[in-house]
């Protein structure tokens, strides 16, 4: 399979033996409809992987399977060689940073409490949680005075940063981000994507990000997975994806490329 070969293809990723995350023959059926039809995937440690594809292609479902929010109908998911289905679901989730679609900040918790949610679940004391929340807020350029505010009082960009901080709080090795900057204006989105990229590198994270922003994926990801109707139709570094002749991949790329060319024509 293409995805399996990806490990060898990713020349800019350090690959030390076994992949960090591996999916084998994953199938998922929801309400009688096949959502994912045989996903094979190997992600090396430290990779920033962008999942792209049309709506309904199965990107979100793949993330949810990896975080055990859904159970596969067939196949295996291994993190560092361990089958996650054999482990306690709650423990698996606490070990993974997952920012769900729409953010899902708890409206009745302060920003600091939202960020400290997983540490609280892990039994950290109040002081340590507060310190961690402030540390992450500084890293994500959130003013400290927002710590005692409620999510309803935040701007879209601030809420997205809090969501990201919550996913990062307990220092997970694996980060799953589902359209984390979906509803933001392009400028904020770009700044936040850069910030995320830097954090990902600095913290040594392995990150899967679902995005509709092809330019972001092509410019910042180490690896891209293109999903179409529940299957991976292309995978590899952005340069390889850009050159992939598959009509569905080219259709996906057509719009951003045309836009880029048009923009290039505008500037003197």
């Amino acid at each position: 399979m293409q995805a399996g070969n990806c490990v060898g293809l990713c020349h800019n990723i350090p690959v030390n033996g076994a992949p960090f995350l591996e999916c084998r023959g994953l199938r998922l059926i929801l309400g009688g409809q096949p959502v994912l039809g045989g996903i094979d995937l190997a992600v090396p440690a430290g990779a920033l992987v962008a999942l792209v594809g049309a709506s309904g292609a199965g990107k979100t479902s793949l993330l949810r399977l990896i975080n055990r929010l859904l159970a596969p109908d067939a196949g295996q998911i291994l993190i560092q060689g361990q089958d996650i289905m054999a482990q306690d679901a709650v423990a698996v989730r606490r070990g993974i940073g997952h920012a769900v679609q729409g953010g899902g900040l708890f409206p009745h918790w302060t920003v600091a409490d939202n960020i400290g949610a997983v540490p609280w679940l892990l039994g950290w004391d109040r002081q340590r949680r507060q310190a961690r929340a402030l540390e992450l807020m500084a890293m994500l350029e959130l003013p400290a005075h927002l710590a005692s505010r409620f999510p309803g009082e935040l701007s879209g960009g601030q809420a997205s940063r809090v969501g990201l901080a919550r996913a990062l709080a307990a220092s997970p090795r694996l980060l799953l981000l589902d359209e984390p900057f979906g509803a933001l204006d392009p400028e904020t989105r770009d700044a936040l994507a850069d910030r995320l990229h830097a954090l990902h590198r600095a913290q040594g994270l392995t990150t899967l990000i679902v995005t509709h922003d092809l330019a972001d994926a092509l410019l910042r990801a180490d690896l891209m997975l293109v999903l179409d109707q529940g299957r991976i139709i292309a995978s590899g570094p952005p340069t390889a994806i850009a050159a992939n002749p598959h009509p569905a991949v080219q259709a996906l790329l057509a719009a951003p490329l045309a836009q880029a060319r048009a923009l290039a024509g505008l500037t003197p």
């Binding site: 975080n67 929010l69 709650v90 423990a91 698996v92 989730r93 606490r94 070990g95 997952h98 769900v100 679609q101 729409g102 953010g103 899902g104 900040l105 708890f106 409206p107 009745h108 949610a117 997983v118 679940l121 919550r166």
Partner: peptide, 27 residues
């Protein structure tokens, strides 16, 4: 309660009872 909030509560690893008391019933 917004679906994303319920979703997030599960995704960050709250148990069924934690979700019930700290998220669903509180909200």
């Amino acid at each position: 309660i917004p679906e994303s909030v319920r979703d997030a509560a599960r995704a960050i690893g709250m148990t069924r009872w934690q979700r019930l008391f700290h998220v669903e019933l509180s909200l």
